[in-house]
């Protein structure tokens, strides 16, 4: 059969930053910012578990909650988030636990990483590959992603908090963070 040439119908951004970005390093005396959302109470609970441990180590912890991303609310959210990033030293961004919320989590994590803030996105197991795919398509294929078990939000609070405890060391490793004054490599 004769051969023809056809034009590629796809488009994809060409640039990529494969770097994971800087380690969070020692959290002592640093300001750690959690990005929360309106959907996942399990992420609220886990962030509270981790926040308590960060505070015990001498870090200050602050929270920012993502709400509507369209209309005037979305405009305000974007401005608020950019301001939030200027006030923190380390960023923990979650929760990638559904399709669109993985999208927004990774988008906000990339914004944080691109602002030079040591950043780790938090995803549940089912959305791990998706998180990496979106990070690559967003131009940050090396984005740090820490993975929690799935399903998560369907569990009771004590079960979720136990997971928070169990996955805390992993979170520190992914962040390249330590709870002492001594730096620890990721």
């Amino acid at each position: 059969m004769a051969l023809i040439k056809v034009l590629d119908p796809t488009a994809r951004r060409a640039d990529d930053n494969a770097s994971a970005g800087p380690d969070a390093g020692s959290l002592v005396g640093k300001r750690v910012g959690f990005r929360l959302d309106q959907i996942w109470r399990s992420w609220d609970w886990i962030s509270e578990v981790w926040a308590a441990k960060f505070r015990e180590a001498g870090a200050e912890v602050v929270f920012w909650r993502s709400a509507g991303r369209s209309g005037d609310e979305g405009e305000r959210m974007n401005a608020e988030y950019q301001d939030f990033l200027k006030t923190i030293d380390v960023s923990v961004v979650g929760l990638a636990n559904c399709g669109s919320c993985t999208g927004w989590t990774i988008r906000d994590a990339i914004a944080s990483a691109n602002a030079g803030v040591p950043t780790t996105a938090i995803a549940t197991k089912n959305f791990e590959d998706f998180a990496h795919e979106l990070a690559a398509r967003g131009g940050r294929s090396g984005l740090r992603v820490h993975v929690l078990p799935y399903p998560l939000n369907e569990l009771k609070r004590d079960e979720v908090e136990a997971i928070g405890e169990a996955y805390f060391e992993g979170a520190l490793a992914a962040m390249g963070a330590s709870l002492t004054a001594q730096e620890k490599a990721a």
């Binding site: 059969m1 004769a2 023809i4 040439k5 056809v6 034009l7 590629d8 119908p9 796809t10």
Partner: peptide
Amino acid sequence: SKRVETEDSIEAFTQASLELGW
């Protein structure tokens, strides 16, 4: 756009498109 070589038929191109993710 990049040119890709394929056989000259709708059937072949449709199959190639599936393989290419198009």
